[in-house]
Amino acid sequence: MNGSKPKKVYFYGTCLVDLFFPDAGMAGIQLLRAAGVEVVFPQGQTCCGQPAYNCGYWEEARDVARTQVALFPEDLPVILPSGSCAGMMKVHYPELFHGQPDEAQVRAFSGRVYELTQFLVQVLGVKLTDLGEPVKVTWHSSCHAVRDLGLKGEPQSLIGQLANVELAPLARTHECCGFGGTFSVRQPEISGAMSCDKAADAEATGASVLLSTDGGCLMNVNGTLEAKGSALKVQHIAEFLWERTHAR
């Protein structure tokens, strides 16, 4: 069994994790290492290029994407602590580079991309032991993680392995939290209304923490909860899993 598991992987932090959630990035790396995998973290990472791609500025998106693909030359899995960025690199890079001279190279890269929980469950089959106090959490599924990347409950199954964690269902769990990248500043009223509704649904679960795979959603929901003065906290799934499963 262990023989088929990769011994070494790349880690791609993503810009939001790099600047706003570095603890989540560190936790993701630690989770991989704890599963017996060597983690290579190339310097020079910036952004997957999704914002420009989504706005139709494809030349600019490609320029940035090329510099990123070049950081991962070896045939190793590339792990991202984000469903949205993983979806961009896995699903949308092949579209973005369609007909480009380096299309084949980019496609090969895309084929190696995984979202962190997807890799932990599907490839590594990790078993977690809960060391934490009883806690009630709720789960926000990122739209891109589910619909672009095709995550099928991997994060929830990891949470399910934690004996002292109660997962409270979030109403309208598949509804977007309202971030949507540039959408949040181009359509601030609609985005804000969606965020407020999501925050209210999250609060109604009675959980003390809202977890997600995606920094964008977390930043959005957290900002909304803070503005409301809510006691509900948000946390990246990687950070939560690492904290619960490893003694400090």
Binding site: G13, G25, G192, S195, G223, A227
Partner: peptide
């Protein structure tokens, strides 16, 4: 300003992930 009408301003971490990995 468009962001903060319904949210608090996001504050970057003190050190980036890349800095910590360096």
């Amino acid at each position: 300003q468009n962001w903060t009408r319904t949210r608090t301003k996001p504050v970057p971490a003190r050190r980036s992930l890349q800095e910590r990995m360096r």
